[in-house]
């Protein structure tokens, strides 16, 4: 028997499921080959990816820029407004009911309004992604601050902290883990928002990854569709890894199982 060190075996564990999924894709292809028009083998997809690398890369880059712009903007606006709403009762009674209503409806029904407001263009696409991120981050930042112990605010009052110092030294650091958590979760929605926004504008060849998936599907080019999906999934995974790392960094002080696990991993 081959003797592998335990540590190396552990790093292999996360790959078991993806490899199994890839295997089942091969298997599904082999049993459906020739029967349907939508079958595509992983090898065909890989070949397409290698052949049209620059086109995929360009689309991916476009979508990535939109995603980044929308998510960053949405996070900043969402966090700032969430903190403000949590602290100012008057703002809360003015905006909270509307925000809660907007957050509870599927945001795609808002797309026509965004089209009316911003027209068919880049501003529209980014604004849809911004909105989807904004609603989530806003709610999380709000709750993070509302759930802080009142002692912290009393402590800040005793030490005569100004409003700005309160924001910088208490509100932001205390809610950062939840804000980054919401950002991470909102990325799932943001990719959907990218696809929907790109579909609504329907521009070729600068449509982006989301549009190319939907376009390929409608035209029956399933190999292209799968290729775009693979690119999108890889990007989503990579971004999640980065945001997950940031989340661990800002959550080191938290008294949670996750923070303790992260510390174990560092050793």
């Amino acid at each position: 028997m081959i003797h592998l060190p335990m540590k190396r075996l552990n790093t292999l564990v996360p790959w078991i499921v993806p490899v199994a999924l890839l295997g089942s894709w091969f298997w599904l292809y082999s049993i459906n080959k020739g029967m349907n028009s939508f079958v595509a083998s992983p090898l065909q997809v890989l070949a397409t990816l290698l052949k049209n690398t620059s086109a995929f890369a360009q689309n991916a880059w476009l979508s990535l820029c939109r995603l980044f712009g929308g998510v960053v903007l949405g996070t900043i606006l969402g966090a700032a407004s969430g903190l403000a709403l949590a602290r100012v009762a008057r703002l809360r009674s003015l905006f909270s009911p509307t925000l809660q209503t907007l957050a509870s409806i599927p945001f795609m029904v808002l797309i026509p309004f965004f089209l009316m407001a911003f027209g068919f263009g880049e501003v529209f696409r980014v604004s849809v992604i911004t909105a989807s991120t904004f609603l989530l981050v806003n709610a999380q930042a709000f709750h993070a601050v509302r759930q802080l112990k009142s002692d912290y605010f009393e402590l800040a009052a005793i030490y005569e902290k100004s409003s700005w110092q309160l924001v910088r030294q208490v509100l932001v650091p205390a809610s950062l883990p939840e804000i980054v958590g919401a950002l991470r979760f909102s990325l799932l929605l943001a990719w959907l928002a990218v696809a929907l926004a790109e579909k609504a504008v329907a521009e070729w060849p600068n449509g982006g990854l989301g549009y190319s998936i939907l376009r390929a599907k409608e035209q029956g080019q399933y190999i292209d569709m799968f290729a775009s999906v693979i690119v999108l999934a890889s990007l989503a995974w990579a971004i999640d890894q980065v945001v997950g790392w940031i989340q661990r960094q800002v959550s080191r002080w938290c008294d949670t199982v996750e923070a303790d696990d992260a510390k174990e991993d560092q050793r």
Partner: peptide, 10 residues
């Protein structure tokens, strides 16, 4: 304070 009230993020 009774529970010391240290700020957990610092």
């Amino acid at each position: 304070f009774q529970d010391n009230c240290l700020l957990p993020w610092l």
